[in-house]
Simulated assay, not measured.
Amino acid sequence: MKRKKHTVPEPPPGKEWVTPKRMPDTRVAVFVIPDGAPDDVREGIARQRIAAVDGACPCGGAVYVLDAEGFWCEHEDDCPGLDRNLLVAMREWRASGWAGR
């Protein structure tokens, strides 16, 4: 009897799959750190990736929900991985004319 091949869907554009340490049978899509990104963008994305894999951010924020749909981390207010801080950094990068090159 032939085994059915399991196909893994492609992650959304600009993202890649990572496997959380405490959930080895789960994949979570996280942003790829873009080449040429400024330090605050790189650090923000890196912290979100660390939180997804390790279950906590270096700022001390714990991951509360982690499943195939994604995760939620309660970052400190000044953490570059906090969505609102990362979005500001990404907007500033885009406004500078460098994003997308």
Rank of each mutant, 00 (worst) to 15 (best):
A37H: 10
H6E: 14
F71H: 06
L87S: 14
G44E: 09
V32C: 05
A99F: 11
P58L: 05
V8A: 05
V18G: 03
T7E: 15
V32D: 05
M90I: 15
K21W: 08
D78W: 13
E43H: 08
P34L: 06
R94M: 09
A37E: 10
F31H: 12
A62V: 12
C79L: 08
G44W: 10
M23Q: 14
D35Q: 10
E76A: 15
D83K: 08
E92I: 05
G97R: 07
W93A: 10
R91L: 13
C79Y: 02
P11W: 01
D67H: 06
I45K: 03
W72D: 13
K15R: 14
A29V: 02
K21S: 12
V65N: 10
G70F: 08
D78G: 14
F31A: 10
R22F: 09
P58S: 02
D39T: 09
E74H: 11
R3I: 06
P9V: 10
P38C: 07
V53W: 00
S96G: 11
V53G: 00
G14N: 09
V32G: 04
E69I: 00
V30P: 03
L87F: 15
V8D: 00
D83F: 11
G61A: 02
P11K: 04
A68D: 12
D83T: 15
E69V: 01
R42A: 13
A62T: 13
G14H: 08
L66W: 03
D54C: 07
I33P: 00
W98N: 12
A29T: 03
I50R: 11
G60L: 05
V18F: 02
I50E: 13
G55V: 01
A46Q: 15
E92Y: 01
V65P: 04
R47D: 00
Q48V: 00
A46I: 02
E92V: 05
C79A: 04
R42I: 10
R49C: 01
R47C: 02
A68R: 15
C73Y: 03
D54E: 15
T7V: 14
P9Y: 07
A51N: 04
P58T: 06
K4E: 14
L82R: 05
A37G: 08
E10A: 15
V28P: 04
D54H: 13
A62G: 01
D40M: 07
R47Q: 11
D77N: 09
N85K: 00
D77I: 07
P80W: 01
H75I: 06
G14P: 05
R101D: 14
M1C: 10
K2V: 14
R3A: 15
D39N: 11
F31Q: 13
P9H: 04
R3K: 14
M1I: 08
A89H: 04
G81C: 10
P34W: 01
C79N: 04
F71W: 05
D40S: 13
M90C: 14
I45P: 02
V41C: 07
E69F: 09
A37I: 06
A68W: 04
D35Y: 06
F71N: 01
A89Y: 02
C57L: 02
R91V: 14
M90S: 08
R3F: 13
K21R: 14
E76I: 03
A37C: 11
D35R: 12
V63A: 09
P12A: 14
C57D: 05
G81Q: 08
R101T: 11
A51M: 07
V28I: 15
R27V: 04
K5S: 11
Q48R: 10
M90R: 10
R3G: 12
F71R: 03
V63S: 07
D83I: 12
P11Y: 06
V8Q: 10
